[in-house]
Computed example of a mutant assay.
Amino acid sequence: MTSVITVEKEKLDNPPLDIHVLGDRVLRQPAKRIAKVDDSVRQLAKEMLQTMYSSHGIGLAAPQVAIHKQLIVIDCEPDNPANPPLILINPKITRVSQELCVVEEGCLSIPGVYLDVTRPKTIEVSFKDEQGKPRKIQATDLLARVIQHEMDHLNGVMFVDRVDNDLALTEKLQEKGFSRGAVKPIK
């Protein structure tokens, strides 16, 4: 599965898009399905990749750049030029494993905050690629986690909403200057 969208995996001084941070209302609005995959969607994906690489991220969802479309870009190997990024349009998780795992997560929209989150270890996801072709992949470990994390953004959910350790959550957010009130716990 090779991407038709190619961008240099480098940090730009002026990335094309601004990443919004925890507390900004745009992050809480659900994204809309993309009706037609066209050049404007591919251009958005390209700019999202440039912005993600510029911020040393491995995943970025359109709502993080204040665009309410179901578009996610992912690259679990940003230092490997041979590894193409993954572009998921209108992604839908079709299966999740019973096996859960707890791993520390961070988010470009909550810089400097890293906390443990429990998620299914393996998922199956269907989506359209940047050519508009239907795809289905099985993802495990880091890729599964990044897809789930970014898909949460499409529903207005932030990873801190899923953190079980309330004390660590409050401490980390305060330490980095974020409001505990911006968290909307999912139980």
Rank of each mutant, 00 (worst) to 15 (best):
R162G: 06
N155G: 15
P85L: 00
L154R: 08
V96R: 06
G132P: 00
K133Y: 05
V163Y: 02
T122S: 03
E150L: 10
K92S: 06
T140K: 10
G156H: 14
T122I: 02
V102K: 07
T122W: 00
D129C: 07
A82E: 15
L115P: 00
V103H: 09
I110Y: 04
S126N: 09
V146T: 09
G132V: 13
F127D: 07
I89H: 11
I110H: 05
P85G: 01
E77A: 06
G156E: 11
D141L: 01
L86A: 08
K136E: 10
V113P: 03
L142I: 12
P134A: 04
Y114W: 15
M158L: 15
L100I: 08
Q148T: 08
V102Y: 03
I72Q: 14
E130K: 11
R135T: 04
K128Q: 14
E124P: 04
K136W: 00
R135Q: 15
N83Q: 15
P84L: 11
L167E: 15
D129G: 04
D152T: 03
D161V: 06
V146Y: 01
I110W: 01
C76V: 14
I74F: 00
L88E: 06
L143H: 00
L108Q: 05
R119P: 01
V125D: 02
N83Y: 10
L108C: 05
A168I: 05
S109C: 07
D152R: 06
V157T: 15
K121W: 09
G132C: 08
N165E: 13
N83G: 07
D75S: 10
D116Y: 14
G112R: 10
P84T: 13
T94V: 14
P134V: 07
N165M: 05
D166M: 13
S126A: 13
P85H: 02
L86E: 06
Y114D: 02
L71F: 02
P81H: 12
V102D: 08
K128H: 12
E104A: 07
V157A: 12
P78D: 04
H153A: 06
D79N: 13
L154T: 09
